[in-house]
Design a protein around this nucleic acid. Structure first.
Length: 920
RNA sequence: GCAGGGGUGACAGAGCUUGGCCAAACGUGCAGGGCUUAGGACCCUGUCCCUUUGUGGGUUCGUGGGUUCAAAUCCCACCCCCUGCACCA
């Protein structure tokens, strides 16, 4: 079968007949299913393929079960990625241009045309959106996904903006939306917040904002501001270090006078402080003077060559007992005649007790690691990190720390910082965790936005409601429900708007764009109404808050048109099942639940979330840098949709990583061809009713496997479904073919072929349509009823008889292997009636321990539980009927005897279900 | 550190929720046989160890303990691995 033309044929037919565009229909039970829309900044890959393939199996199954299934799609464009691609292309960034020329070339054979399309991306980001969104639809359709394409939109559409505005008005009304100061990374050139993508090497060497505590040391009418990550050591300060060759400034900061490094004065101005630099001077000028610690002690100011003036405030206070750098710095100064006298007076103060160290852990480590001077920065960093970790998690505050004595260092750290801040003796200062540069070339620093918008997940009532929603939400695989609960507990304030990017402006503060995870939490509701909104000719400006209030909540003014839209919503909502990757639990899916409880009435909260793991290729994680990303288009082209889908569904459980291996795909492809070969044969056979053991067996097997497949699908055990419906059923039918005569084949084929095709239609829809048509099915199999073979087909004795036959075959093989000779005659001896009776008595015992001693007894004892399912069969009749089949299997004559009449020396071995076998 | 997930045969990966039918599914790989001019494909058989005109025995499911007539499955401790930790789609 040529998969490409067959797949294309049915995709075209589905499209032409709008096969998956449901209408509201009160007589039919609806099933509203969603998978998150893809982000439109490039091409789709196997990961999307897997998630959507899983989704499609669900959608198709439900549809065939008779549900009115709505499974729509749309496009996510919010945020900076699309903008970034556009601006990089505009700037002539070669790598980006190359990447997108490659993507576009997949669809455009004309190189010139591809290049001009990419060039257009640089002119307007919407060109990217418009181009790729069409291609994404194309790629999805090529995979046979039964999507409703008539409800497409992007998150940048005017109508969508109005919808998100409604959502944020609602958040605000409920008090979930707040403004507060917030530290973040910032580019001084762009004058904008930056994310990982905007920073050079931001993905390989991530940067984050570190919060330091700035201690104010009184110095005349000013304050020297030192910075520390360990405010808990405040009691151990012995001196201040400045860098002699660095430039420091006196500056007015919020009405006080600070002395900090020149570079920090600029950063501080970005941290929500009013900074006015008065004068600058050299670090040398401070040396030899004294300052007063936040706790009121007068300490000397010493030279510290190790101090980095470009890091934080550029001033470091010294805690020699607990900081290896400080310890070594003082040791070095002791050898300097200019400072010897001052330094020798300094007594380290121990303020944290920790097991395994002396009073001066810094000294212990410096000696242990043999650190002689400040040049051994690597060792010092290591010692600092080790000590910090040890003290933070295991240390307790010493007796000399006043009311903090005995408190864990990890807790004292924040308590002391809060206390000093409250007393006006300290302040928060922020710094990037490493020196970083923006892609634009500007320096990346820590800044504080004074008016960042947040969603406060701890706002009164919200979490409780959301926990209630989670409680009744079905999660599959089930064990992830726990993870949701934990995420819900942990969620706190989360920024929800940025200063730039595509998307929706905050309606009451239009300098802000609603951030991309925050504008996609309730859009499933938008799918239900957008079609009607367009149909009725609503303009964006008509879609006011009042309008949506009525549509979604039935609140406020009713108009005829709004009522029509509301009816759509009421029919389709809630979202019956949302399926996506496990990685989204901690963000999107949790926000999805929270946003629903905030915006909708309880009956419209979601019903189920299902999840799948990610995809790797040939055992390795896919990434652009490795160049091993398998694109979805490539799969449609080279592998074929049906084969990929079967592979994705049958190879890994939803909770397991799917490894996309070309070799395995090929192997599966050969098995799939075998199925097609059998269908080719079956779909044209017409037969009259025949009754025979193997016909009964085949029907019973078909009945049972169909039933099991259905159960697996209902339980979202998709892999088990594929295993049963594809592998096991095909194996069973192959066995049947090896045992049946022409009349039996024709009869079973005609009975089984269409149910069989429809059973597999959810995974391999194109081939299923093809064979459905070939076998005389009406309409699309996609719309056919789910197969339900008559219960009368179930025939456990027929199955037991065939099992017995196969077990006997296997036993004969064992014997043949042992005797190692070509058999001429095989004698099969059936157990006597009296033996059989005793056997049945034994397996009827209440428990195996009660069974006594003996050959048969120990046999029964050993497999007592297995034998509970033992079904007596007429062994002589079953094997007798299959005599020619068996003889052809073994290439030997077969003789049957009954134990009581047999002279054979091995007759004693005969047991019910296990005839004795003698080979000669 | 906090939170979540996981450690099973050459590989990959079920089973563990509801302990016995588990030497442990399906599949790869490997070996032997058939088919074939040959290779591929296809079919059959085997694939922890020992033993055998038989369906028997032994040792296994990260490590070490425990509960039980019985544990890959339940409990405890330990070791190791992966993921997430917030403005990022």
């Amino acid at each position: 079968m040529d998969f490409k033309s067959v797949e294309k044929k049915w995709q075209d037919a589905w499209a032409k007949q709008k096969a998956f565009e449901p209408k509201t229909d009160a007589s039919k039970e609806k099933f509203f299913f969603t998978v998150p829309y893809p982000y439109v900044s490039g091409s789709l890959h196997v990961g999307h393929g897997r998630t959507y393939a899983v989704g499609d199996v669900v959608a198709r199954f439900k549809r065939m079960q008779g549900f009115n299934v709505l499974w729509p799609m749309a496009f996510h464009i919010t945020g900076t990625p699309v903008l970034a691609v556009s601006s990089k292309i505009a700037e002539g960034d070669a790598a980006t241009i190359q990447l997108h020329t490659d993507y576009v070339s997949v669809y455009e054979s004309d190189r010139k045309k591809a290049e001009s399309i990419v060039a257009s991306f640089g002119k307007d980001p919407w060109n990217i959106v418009n181009y790729y969104s069409k291609k994404l639809v194309h790629d999805f359709w090529r995979m046979g996904f039964s999507l409703d394409l008539s409800r497409q939109f992007t998150t940048g559409d005017k109508e969508y903006n109005k919808f998100v505005e409604w959502q944020f008005y609602t958040f605000k009304e409920k008090g979930y939306l707040k403004q507060a100061a917030y530290p973040l990374l910032y580019c001084v050139k762009d004058r904008n917040a930056v994310g990982e993508d905007d920073i050079k090497d931001g993905d390989s060497n991530p940067v984050d904002v570190q919060r330091f505590t700035g201690f104010k040391f009184a110095f005349g009418d000013a304050f020297l501001v030192s910075s520390t990550l360990r405010p808990d050591t405040v009691y151990g300060i012995t001196n201040m270090f400045v860098r002699p060759d660095a430039t420091y400034v006196r500056a007015e900061v919020d009405g006080e006078t600070f002395i900090v490094s020149e570079s920090f004065s600029k950063k501080l101005a970005l941290q929500n402080h009013a900074v006015n630099v008065m004068q600058s001077f050299s670090g040398k000028d401070l040396l030899g003077k004294t300052c007063i610690t936040p706790l009121g002690q007068t300490v000397p100011i010493l030279p510290g060559a190790f101090v980095d003036a470009d890091h934080a405030t550029g001033l470091v206070h010294s805690v020699p007992a607990h900081a290896p750098f400080d310890w070594v710095a003082l040791e070095v100064l002791k050898k300097d005649d200019a400072w010897k006298k001052t330094v020798e007076k300094i007594r380290p103060v121990s303020v944290i007790d920790v097991d395994g160290f002396s009073s001066f852990p810094a000294k212990d480590l410096v000696e242990k690691m043999k650190i002689a001077n400040l040049k051994e920065k690597g060792k010092l960093d290591k010692a600092t990190a080790e000590l910090y970790k040890k003290e933070f998690y295991e240390g307790r505050m010493a007796q000399n720390t006043g009311r903090f004595a005995g408190v864990k260092a990890s807790e004292a750290k924040d308590q002391i910082a809060d206390w000093l801040k409250k007393e006006g003796k300290a302040l928060d200062v922020f710094e990037a965790s490493r020196p970083a540069e923006c892609r634009c070339g500007g320096q990346v620093v820590a800044a504080v936005l004074s008016d960042q918008w947040f969603l406060d997940y701890n706002a009164p009532g919200w979490k409780e409601k959301s926990r209630a929603a989670l409680e009744r939400l079905r999660v599959h695989p089930e064990n992830y429900k726990k993870q949701f609960q934990d995420v819900f507990d942990w969620l706190d304030k989360r920024p929800c708007a940025r200063r730039r990017g595509l998307g929706t402006q905050l309606p009451f503060n239009n300098e802000w764009i609603i951030e991309s995870l925050s504008d996609s939490t309730i859009y499933m509701a938008f799918y239900t109404v957008i079609k009607k909104i367009r149909e009725l000719g609503f303009k964006p400006q008509d879609l006011s808050k009042e309008f949506f209030d009525y549509v979604f909540l039935g609140k406020g003014k009713k108009t005829e048109a709004a009522e029509k839209v509301r009816q759509e919503f009421l029919y389709w909502y809630p979202n019956d099942q949302r399926h996506t990757a496990i990685a989204h639990i901690a963000n999107h899916l949790s926000f999805f639940v929270f946003a629903h409880t905030a915006c909708f009435q309880e009956e419209h909260w979601p019903n189920a979330i299902t999840l799948n793991e990610l995809v790797v290729a040939e055992g390795t994680k896919m990434s652009k840098s490795k160049g091993n990303v398998v694109s979805l288009n490539d799969i449609a082209e080279k592998t074929g949709a049906d084969l990929f889908r079967l592979y994705a569904i049958s190879t890994a459980d939803l909770g397991a990583t799917l490894d996309f291996r070309r070799n395995d795909v090929e192997t599966l492809g050969r098995r799939l061809s075998k199925l097609y070969a059998v269908w080719d044969e079956f779909s044209v056979l017409k037969g009259k009713p025949v009754d025979s053991p193997i016909v009964r067996w085949a029907r019973s097997k078909f009945y049972r496997l169909t039933q099991q497949s259905t159960q697996h699908l209902e339980a979202m055990a998709l892999r088990d479904y594929a295993q049963t419906a594809f592998f096991e059923l095909l194996n069973a039918m192959e066995h049947f073919l090896s045992r049946a005569n022409e009349a039996e084949k024709a009869y079973v084929a005609s009975q089984v072929v269409r149910p069989w095709i429809s059973l597999l239609a959810p995974v391999i829809p194109h081939a299923a349509e093809e064979y459905w048509q070939k076998s005389g099915g009406k309409g699309f199999v996609s719309h056919a009823a789910w197969p339900k073979p008559p219960e009368a087909w179930s025939d456990l004795s027929a199955e037991a008889e065939e099992d017995f036959l196969l077990n006997t075959v296997s036993d004969v093989r064992t014997v043949l292997k042992l005797v190692k000779k070509k058999p001429e005659k095989i004698t099969v001896i059936f157990a006597s009636k009296s033996k059989e009776k005793r056997f049945m008595d034994l397996i009827g015992f209440p428990s195996p321990e009660k069974i006594g001693e003996g050959v048969m007894e120990s046999y029964v004892k050993k497999r007592f539980y297995e034998l509970q399912r033992f079904k007596r069969v007429d062994e002589a009749r079953v094997l007798g009927a299959a005599q020619s089949f068996l003889e052809s299997q073994f290439g030997a004559a077969l003789v049957f005897e009954e134990e009581s009449k047999s002279q054979n020396p091995r007759k004693e071995k005969a047991l019910p279900g296990k005839p004795a076998i003698f080979v000669e």
